[in-house]
Nucleic acid binder design. Structure first.
Lengths: 152, 152
DNA sequence: CCTTAAAATGAAATTGAATTTCATTTTCAA
DNA sequence: TTGAAAATGAAATTCAATTTCATTTTAAGG
């Protein structure tokens, strides 16, 4: 259930002097109830099923707002598409991406974080965030590797 | 000296049935002789100093060609800009990026690679490539952290 | 329940980098 | 030397991202 997130959203909204609208809550609702890593067109398509009157611009602006508030994360993987992912508090993870079927798997690896800190220290950096993506074939695509490729 | 790279380029070119042109070698020359992580506009600006007749499109196409041949690597960091980096054979590295001054540092960490393989194995993936970027403040920007920020 | 200033909406317009088109020029193998 | 294939460069196109602007909606204060 997203009542919690929904309330968090409303609190943040009013704290910023912004306003709660039907559109915003519909968009948030759709966004939170679909699988992660969606592009704007996909989100817009789903939103218009709920309310066909909502404009693309509003979806765009709402996702941007959600990102600013930390409720969404914007991702750009190697294919160049812009995607949005719900961002429940304290969730952090990296991605495994299949270059054949497009499957995206999230993973979390503590050892990775500490290794990153070690590297940062070596160069005198203070790290706030990172991006880490592994590209290859997923299990089922590996076994089909010799068959026709989906791209190129 | 880039005579080596330049020859490698000519060999690859003819092997593909493509042609050596003055423009291509001028662009390659400029590209290899400047610091890494340049965007197209920067490369174009430098190229036109050598030969003002060269068109933007040709620079664009040549960088695309170099990328296809593996002599260049295209990078998109979190700022969304497209950059190109020379790619001498066997060079692989990741990046530390300063969010304040924009400095980009390359690093290589074997432990990272093996950790990645371990993760891939866990999910049944075969990894071909990865992307790993650490964002934060570099040493000198960390010490200026309290002063005016460069952005936002 | 009103009023109204501030914010939100949505259709349309704009932007800007990436990419393509096309007429002309250049390369290079025979 | 020649001609087919490739390259060039200016201009046009594409397309997602973003902005504009007239209109509508929200919500805080009376």
């Amino acid at each position: 259930m997203d009542a919690m997130e929904s309330n968090r959203f409303k609190k943040m909204i009013s704290k910023e002097g912004l306003k709660s609208t039907r559109q915003r809550s519909e968009i948030l609702d759709v966004f939170l109830h679909s699988a992660g890593h969606q592009n704007l067109a996909e989100i817009y398509a789903r939103v218009t099923k709920v309310n066909p009157k909502i404009g693309y611009t509003t979806v765009y602006r709402t996702l941007k707002l959600l990102t600013r508030l930390g409720l969404a994360v914007q991702r750009k993987f190697a294919d160049g598409e812009t995607r949005y992912e719900p961002n429940p508090e304290g969730t952090h993870h990296d991605h495994l991406i299949c270059l054949r079927c497009g499957k995206i798997i999230e993973f979390k690896e503590e050892a990775m974080e500490s290794l990153q800190n070690k590297i940062a220290k070596r160069y005198g950096f203070s790290i706030f965030q990172h991006r880490m993506e592994l590209y290859g074939y997923c299990g089922s695509c590996t076994s089909k590797k010799d068959l026709k490729r989906s791209k190129r």
